[in-house]
């Protein structure tokens, strides 16, 4: 079943009088099935983040449509759009700037709950809220007691976990991750990826996973979409894109990174 569908999405920036517009996303159409992981790869500046912002409706597209669960996100009333936002959450690239430095972890993780459920606001509801936040933190492998700390007291990997805990607070159906592991070192990266895989098994989450780390993509993706200059030049099952890339650009991308799995590297060269 299709959860998310993009139809002819286009985004131009600038383009005032006498200036050519930058086309950041140029006619992207794709569909993401419920429960799958779609990876979005491509060089820096190829439009991945812009596409993420478009599909989350954080930016208005110049043209095209975003359909979530069959409904067009354009033209929704603010209240309806908020209701849809409950179901699609995001974890952004930089764990250092994605948290308000003046908020405690409790309030950071509880923000989605408080935003969508006014009933949990207020001092009286505080104990219940703390309990829920504690449960979410434990789900991402952090002790519930870290709630009273501020973001700067955590390492990059821990912050990333906090971001994921926050994104999971509303039990969304779609989780969009923009380079969720690029700021992490390799061992922490592996922990975060394991966590994501486990959550997907348990809750049937759908992921849109942006990365230029092809080793990571290989490990998590069911399907891979390759972006270049705002367009999708190749899309297909991960094994196919990695082992038999159909587009010259994809081959160049793959050759540009050392393959962490020597067996597959050999296979690819051989095949």
């Amino acid at each position: 079943m299709t959860l998310l569908e993009l139809r002819g999405l286009r985004k131009e920036y600038g383009g005032r009088i006498g200036q050519a517009a930058t086309v950041a996303v140029d006619g992207v159409s794709l569909a993401v099935a419920e429960g799958e992981t779609l990876a979005l790869v491509g060089e820096s500046g190829s439009g991945k983040t812009t596409l993420v912002r478009l599909l989350l409706r954080l930016t208005e597209p110049t043209a095209g449509q975003v359909l979530f669960d069959g409904g067009d996100l354009a033209g929704l009333t603010p209240a309806r759009l908020r209701a849809v936002r409950r179901e699609m959450q995001v974890v952004l690239q930089d764990p250092y700037s994605s948290m308000n430095p003046r908020m405690r972890v409790t309030d950071i993780v509880a923000e989605p709950l408080v935003t969508h459920d006014p009933a949990v606001r207020g001092r009286a509801r505080r104990p219940g809220l703390r309990e829920r936040v504690g449960g979410l933190l434990e789900a991402v492998g952090l002790p519930a007691a870290v709630q009273d700390r501020y973001p700067h007291e955590f390492s990059g990997g821990q912050r990333q976990r906090i971001s994921i805990a926050r994104a999971l607070a509303l039990e969304p159906r779609l989780l969009v991750l923009d380079e969720p592991t690029s700021a992490l070192d390799v061992s922490v990266q592996a922990q975060v990826l394991d966590l994501l895989a486990e959550l997907q098994r348990r809750r049937g989450l759908t992921y849109v996973f942006v990365s230029h780390n092809l080793a990571v993509v290989r490990a998590v993706a069911d399907r891979v979409a390759v972006m270049r200059h705002g367009r999708i030049v190749e899309i297909g099952p991960a094994a196919q894109v990695f082992d038999a890339p159909g587009h010259a650009y994809t081959r160049a991308l793959l050759d540009a990174v050392p393959d962490p799995d020597p067996r597959r590297a050999r296979r690819r060269k051989a095949g």
Binding site: L58, R85, V90, L92, S98, E111, P112, T115, R166
Partner: peptide, 14 residues
């Protein structure tokens, strides 16, 4: 333009 503001918007905060 900081990510925490973007995320707040993505969450649905007004």
């Amino acid at each position: 333009t900081r990510d925490f503001v973007t995320e707040a918007r993505a969450i649905g905060a007004g």
